[in-house]
Structure formats: C-alpha cells, structure tokens
Design a protein around this nucleic acid. Sequence first.
DNA 1: CAATACGCGTAC
DNA 2: GACGTACGCGTATTGG
Length: 935
Amino acid sequence: MTERRLYLIDAFALIFRAYYGNMRLKNGAAYTMARMLLALVAQHKPTHIAAVFDRPEPTFRHEIYPEYKANRAEMPEDLRPQVPLIKDLIQALNIPVVELAGYEADDVMGTLARMASREGLPTVIVSPDKDLLQLVDDPGGVQVLNNRDGEVWIDRAGVKARFGVWPEQVVDVLALMGDASDNVKGVDGIGEKGARDLVDQYGSLDAILAHRGELKRKAHREGLEAALDRLPLVRRLVTVVTDLTLPVTPADLAYPGVDMAQARNAFKALGFEQLTKEFTAVGSATAPAPERRYRAAATLADLEAAVAACRQAGRFGLDTETTSLDPVRGHLVGLSLAWQEGDGLYVPLAHLKPGSEAAEGALPGLLPESGLPEALLDLRGDPEAFFDDLAPHLDPRNLPFREVRRILAPLLADPAVAKAGQNLKYDLQVLRRHGLPVAGVGDDSMVLSFLLDARSRHNLDDLSSRHLDLRPIPFEAVVGKGKAQKRFDEADFDQAVQYAAEDADLALRLCRKLGPLVDAAGLERLYREVDLPLVAVLADLELDGVRLDPAVLERLAVDLRAQREASLARAVELAGEPFNLNSPAQLGRILYEKLGLPVLKRTDKTKAPATDEDVLTELAQREDGEIAQVLLRHRQVQKLLSTYVEALPTMVNPVTGRLHTRLHQAAVATGRLASSDPNLQNIPVRTEEGRAIRAAFVPRPGWVFLDADYSQIELRVVAALAGDPVLLGAFERGEDIHRRTASEVMGVPMEAVEPSQRSAAKAVNFGLLYGQGAFALSGSLGITFKEAKAFIDRYFERMPKVAEWIEATKARALEDGLVRTRWGRVRPIPDLHSSNPGLKAQALREAVNTVVQGTAADIMRRAMVRFAQALAKEGLAARLLLQVHDELLVEAPPEEADRVEALLREAMEGADDLGTLGVSLAAEVRRGANWMECK
DNA sequence: CAATACGCGTAC
DNA sequence: GACGTACGCGTATTGG
C-alpha cells in the first residue's frame, strides 16, 4: 500500500509552463499538461489529489490594494481558449478541480494543506512558485515539489538551503523584496539577496524594523524608513491565507486513478493521436511504456557477444556518455552499441559509487581548476592510467576500461563496419581522446536531417518525435536541471543505462529512416562525398586547435585599457555625470535627454533612441558632437578588449595550450559552418588595431602558416549559375572583377576606372549577393536614391543574364516553397507566400542569397574533405586549423610547405567536382609566421 | 542565480 | 520596407 499523500497542483503555474514549453503545437499547452499530469500520477501514485485554479474575479488583495497585479499582461491569445479544455481534461483524468472566488490558488492550497496536516495527511504542493515555500512544514507535513528542474523536493531544510531562510521567515523576505510580477513594491534598496540576508541575520521583519537604525547599509536604512507605512500591507499581500472556508475537505480528494476509457475519449476529442493510441491498449491503469530492450553489459562476455553481433550486422549505432558537453573537456562515462532496432547495450565505464563524494576536484587525474582529465587531453596521455586512478571511486557495475578498450578498439577502428550516430563528431573526439580512434563513419542522423531540411531542428529529441514518433528520455530526467544538475557519472545507474542505450538505438533507427530519404531527394553524393566525410575532418580540426600567443594579446591589452580609461574619463566629463558607457539605455539618456542631441534613428524592437555607429558618426560631425566621437572610439576599444583581447586567452586549453573552437555542421541555414566557443570566424581584420589580434594566432614552434582564400567565390557562383558572359569572361581572364564591373557599367575603359568608381562597383557587386535595393545602396555609397537606382539599372542592362537568373530563381522558389544549392542542399523558406509584403520580399532575398551563399559553402565543404584526404594519402604532418567561409588556415612543417601549398590549391580549385560549376575557381595562398602576416 | 531579450559590433 | 548568414559581449529584465 502506498503512503497516503495529498498532491495539490498549482494549475495555472503549470499551464503557463506547459504553454511556453510547447508553443508550436495546436493545443500544445493542453497536450503538455496532460503529459505532465500523467507522469506525475504514474510516478507518485497519489492517494489524494486536486488541481487548484485561480478565479478571474478580483480577490481580497485587489480590495486592500487596488494596484494589485495591475501590470499583468493579458493571457496569450492562443492560450486563453485552451484553459477550459484543460479543465475538462483534468476532470477526465479523475482529478478534482478546486477554486474559490475572491481567493487565489495559493490561498486555497494553503488552506487545504493545513487541513490535511491536522488530519495527519502529508501534502505535496506541485509548483515552481517560490511564494509557496512559506507553507512548507514537516516532518510529515507539507512539502513543495518543484518539477521545473527535473524533480526537486523541498522540505524545511530545502527551503533554508534554496531560499536562505526558514519557511516561517519567507513572508518577511517577500515583504521586503516585494513581488514585481504582482506589482507589489517592497523596500527600495533591498533586493532578494538583501532581504534574505537581513531576515537571516535578525530573524524576522519586526526585529529588522526594531533595529532599523543600526543597519550597515545606508540604502537599507533609508529604504526601510520610507517603506515603514507600507510594510504591514505588503506583508499581508504576500501572505498565503490558510483559514478559508472551503466546500471540500481533503478526504473528498481521494484519488481513484485514471479511467482508461474516459481518458482516451478526452484525448481523442482533443486530437492527441499518440495519447489516444497509448490509452487504447488494454491493461494497466497508466500509459503502457513502449517495449525497451535496453540493458547494461554485466560482463566482458556480454561485450564480446555484442561486438560479434555488430560485426555480423556490418553496422551499428554508437553513442558515448561523458561528464561534459564540451568534447575537449570531461571524460568517458560509458558507451552504447545498438545493432538491431529496439535493442541497445550500454557499457558502463566510470559511474561513481552511489553516494560517493563526487566533487570534481576529488577525482584523481582531473586538473583541479577546470576539471579536465589531464591524461586524456593531449592525445599522448595514458587513458588506462586515468581509469586506474579512478578505480577506488567507481561503482562495481562498471566494466574495466582496459579490457573494454582491448575488445572494442578493433571494431571501432575497422572502416568496414559502419558506425551510425547522432552528431558522431562528438563521439569521434571523445573516443580518440581515450585511445579509441574510430574509422567507418557510416551515417549521422544530424547530418542527414540537415541535408533534408537545413532549417529545422536536428537534436535527437526533435528528430525522434518527428520521424519515429518516439519521445526519448530527456537528458534532464537523468541528470536533473539547474542547481541540482548532476554529471552523468553521478546519475542514477539504471536510469543512465536506459537513457544511454536508447540514444544508440534511436540514432540507428533515425539513420535507417533518413538515409533513404536523402537518397530519394537526390542528395546521396552530397551526403557521401561531402557532408559525411566532413564529420571526421571537423572532429580532427577541433581536437587539434590553434596555438595562441598570449603575450601578443597582453601587450595589446595594456595599450587598449589605457585608451579605454582615457575615453571613459573624457566622456564622463562631457556628460557632466558618471554613467555606464556600455549601456545603450544610459547612454541614450545622456545624449538625448541631458545633452539634447537630436534623435536620428530609433531601435527596431523597442523604438528607443538608437546609439549605434551610424548615429554616433553623424552626431560626431556636429559642433557639440565631441562626446559622440569619444564614444565611437570607446566602443571600438571596448569591443576589441571584451570580445577578443581579454576573452581569447581565457579559452586556451590548459593542457594543449591551444584554442579549440567548435565548428557546427548543422547550424547555418545556407550550409555554411558556424564557429563558437570561441567564434574564430569573426576575428577582426578591417582595422589595423583589430588586425593586430591575428598576430597572436601562431603555428606550433618551427612550423609555418599557410592561408588560402577563395577569390570572389560567391560572385563566381553567380556568374556561373547565371551564365553571364561579361562576368565569366572577366573571371576566365583573371581580371579585377570590380574594375571590370565599373568599366562595363560606367562605360569607361578598364585602365581609366577611377578608384571611386571601382569601389562603387564593388558595393553593387556585394549588394547583388544580398538582394540590396537602391535605397540601401544610396546609403552605403553616400549617393542619392536616384543615382543608386540608375546605377543598378545600368548594371542589369549590361549583365542581363544576372537579372534573368535572379528572376528565375525567385520564380522557382515561389513555386517550390524552397530553394536548393547547385548540389541540391535544401532550405525551405516558409515566408515566400506571406501576405505581409515585407516578409515576402525578405523571403525572396533570402532565397536568392541562399543559392549563392549555399553553393559556395558546399564547395568549401568539399574542398576541406579533399584537402584532408590529400594530407592523409601523402602521410603529411600538416594540419587544417580553421575555416572562415572562403578561407582555410593550415599549419605545416617548413619542409612540407611547398607540397602542402600545392595540395591546398588543388583541393580548393578542384572542389566543384561534384557537379561542375562552369567557372574556374581561384585560391590565393599566403604564408606567414602568424595569421596577420597572411593578409 | 539563470535564462532570456536587447542593442551593438565583428566576420564573410 | 528597403542587406544575406552567423556568434558574443554587456546590460537589463524576468522568473507567471
């Protein structure tokens, strides 16, 4: 018999969470609410339960304080109609709905909880709202279940731990800090932290008031003095009422359990197909779990049998579990193999003993500050020694790493056995760092999904529900969320097994499903010859990293900090008061309210007066514009310092001494790669000062950098796709394309083109790629709209094929609702048929730009694969370090430099071998002792 | 405290 | 309305 307990659901709080968690589906809030309640009922088997709602009528709080909740936004349009549906749904689940006019759900729950306590019935309040912590009372009394972050139970000690004070002190804290969302003002100068500290120190609000003259902080003393009259009212507003007269008693809330048929009818009426199906099954009172054959390997013989089965199958799903999402941090905790659908074997390697002290620093072999496994990072360390050190802390259910490695290594390294995974790049990196190199990347569900639709989401959860109609165990369900989040090696063992084995199974199933779709879409070659081999190329690139010389940046930092201080001082002097130069809001007040400068532009979202570079440049021209000038300089310096000069050195990996960026293959809708942590695709180059940062990027000692740029690759793509003879001719003759454009459009001979004419032509050429209009061109060139329009018109007159191609591309996009690159990569563009003319125009620009940018991106991907293959074939030591859209950075030993340069040029210039473009590609290679010298 | 939004600025 | 694709920093707000 389960323990008697009353569960009180804070209905609106959960509904809002359900709503924001599932906005995309029609009736998404109702659906998610149903799922949450079913999970709660299945997991906790409550003996008593109620869903408590707020009523729309004003409450006693409005009566004693008219402004109560006056700032509340209306309920979202698409949520309001769901509320009655949700009420019906809850009742269909046999859960009683309780509400009382004039009082909020909090008060009803408070009263019910107190009544239950008196009857000896323990109560659990399910809510993320901190206000309810005041009701907590144990042992055997009231607990709060915050199921926002996984599941967090909060008892008296929990309130103290999370909120800093005991439950009976919560109202005092709330009174001091107020509640912005209810429009209740607390004490000026006291925020949440201040309130907690004060109550903790003095014990209660009354005690604080009695000692208000002695408080340390002036702001606290003055704030309290000013709020003295208001505080009793505030305290009453935030206090939950526990003595209402209710039409129900806890005994009335006994829970009979879900009635399958009744629930099924409700789900069906709401159109929840999956749930309807689940509840159609005969049998138990709760939703039947789909059959899982997921288990952990208990012995090495289990593993050996699995390896044999994988070999037999010729391909298997592979997934690794680690202590960190960052592929160059953390260590292997286990790995999963799945060789037939529905099965999955998890191999546990480094799960900690339950309840063992798992503080990061306490684990042997981890660098104390970063938690990095030292032995594993530089690829030369000894992973087995690391696991030996770990052994005393490990759960006995783990298998010994040394033996597992011996058994698995040949399978993983065998290119004839295909590995299927979700984001295999990550697994490749983790395994290689543990002395388990992988060959035979057979399929990657993330890469497949990206090829089919570059716009959608590609994580395992989304893919599984979209393509398999399965909802995998959420990662958070295993490790928790927020403060209570654990590392994977600390998670519950059995849950970890299910989660991990499922991932390998799902990846295998997704690849089986998506592979044929990619083939059917005519994308097989793009997948097999570009995107799939790119996975291993990027894995290596990221692991290699690039060397950074911190001394270069430190010198730069000293100089820039001095400049920043000087401009700060001058700006404050000109403003007449101190302010935060980094705050556009504060800056706006100074510029436009205090100094009375004219507002030239407003921001898009909030219509606040803009303070961007354009505006400041304009203001700087004025007599009283010195402050704008100073700010421009400050902005530039601050940007360089905060984003690059001070940030980059902190991201250097302490073991490798190198910067390991991440390159994302399935991130950019056009097919470009994206770089992050740090982003090395936006290192400054335009200004001299910014460029100096590139001098800190250096090859390993004794080696050289080779840096290769595609020349005008996007314009070449346009020329080829449009078949424009003027542009194609210019490229074939190796001419300066902007000069040629100027010559054609302005009707002057090539040698007579003025620099200003060339730069105008250059602007038009770039604008072309983005679908720029005359208005924007006039702005960027500082000419009139009329002049710009005439310029563009003449451009298309001289190059009519380009105009035709643009129109044809738009027409095709409108017909298909999507665009494709030269090699078939797909990007759906939903707004193409928008009734909003602005959105539609934007969609058309996106369509044209995507074909150009995406085709160039495909070519660059292919070039990277070709180059990596060439290096491997010739057994060279040179390494590919970075890709910046049209540029590849390589480091090589000096004796390899000539050969590598030839290979690099060949790889890039011949990279349209998947479907000839019809224009020659040109790559320019430079050498240098640092990245700056390569420009 | 953390997550999120915003304004801004860097790259190609 | 009027130029496409990204990522990151600092500030300010929110958390229902």
